[in-house]
Design a protein around this nucleic acid. Sequence first.
DNA 1: CGCCAGGTGGCCC
DNA 2: GGGCCACATGGC
Length: 231
Amino acid sequence: MECGQFFNWTREGKGYRVAAWGKEFRVRQEGGDLVFSGAPSRFIRRFFALDHDPSRILRSMPQDPSLKDAYASFGRLRLLRQEPWECLVAFLLTPTSNIPRIQRNVRALYAETGFRVRALRDEGRLRALGAGFRARYIADAAANRRFLKGGRDSLKRILGVGDKVADCVMLFAFGDYGSFPIDVWTRRILRRLYRRRLDDKRLPAWAREHFGPWAGYAQQWLYAWARGKAF
DNA sequence: CGCCAGGTGGCCC
DNA sequence: GGGCCACATGGC
């Protein structure tokens, strides 16, 4: 919940209230159990990707000390299966923002519009909610939902969708688990730990190749690990 | 107050 | 295709 892949939640008691796939439900972790209410278990298992096997995913990658360390701290996280439109709207709010602000913007947008397309076409309203220059991106996306398909090239026709946002939507909503989104953090990580001399432009392809078909998990472990370290 | 933030589009050459 | 830079605002 807190590792920056998904933003539409609030803390509630010992757990979270979550809004996803047009539903609202509660979850909390108790030891190895996931306790929930407000949604069917079938949905919960799928959303939280409980069918994924993190240790097997780790073993599918080339091992190195940094990756093992990141896995030791964050290996229990899962890549959630997000609803594509909700995921796109959230990540259109991310450029040159920060996690607390993104989450606040996502929650305000959800509270105000429920992510309904008609409401999100109103750029002025989005600005009033604090989206800043990103308001235009979302208004454009709402007017061009036909490009929201499981393909990078189609996604990138939406204003505000570049390599990074496209990779996030492919990874978090379309199940392209080899996707390795490059942002300031993951760029820093890859440069410092793996490929100091490689062009920025080549990093996404390099990471996909290096970590393999589950590279997205490596990305998420390393991201969570580095973010807590003044890396 | 100044720097940075899960980048991108639109210029310029 | 690469190198700038504005974008709108909050966190720290």
